[in-house]
């Protein structure tokens, strides 16, 4: 139950004064509460935990992390050192 899962916001609406969204998790759609993520809007990726959005996923830093992974080891062989 404790896993936070990334999904993409398709639609945003209000229910009883609370910001809600329809979030797409790879084809499975669920209602998600946006009460604590005012910066999350349609098209954004968000980490959802028990039907509650915890944060907006930062695409730029996701890309940066992947770039960093791609650079691991390359630097070593180029510089001839054993570790980063």
């Amino acid at each position: 139950m404790c896993l936070g899962v990334p999904g993409q916001v398709e639609r945003v609406w209000e229910a009883d004064g609370t910001r809600m969204a329809t979030v797409d998790f790879g084809g499975v759609r669920k209602d998600v509460c946006l009460a604590c993520t005012p910066d999350v809007g349609v098209g954004d990726w968000t980490i959802v935990h028990v039907g509650f959005a915890l944060t907006k996923l930062d695409e730029a830093s996701a890309r940066e992390t992947l770039e960093l992974f791609r650079a691991v080891g390359l630097l070593d062989s180029e510089l001839g050192t054993g570790s980063v």
């Binding site: 936070g4 009460a35 604590c36 993520t37 980490i47 915890l54 944060t55 930062d58 695409e59 996701a62």
Partner: peptide, 15 residues
Amino acid sequence: PRAVRPEGNPAAQQV
């Protein structure tokens, strides 16, 4: 860092 900012989520902490 794509999901964790140093300050966390202030709105969630407040609730």
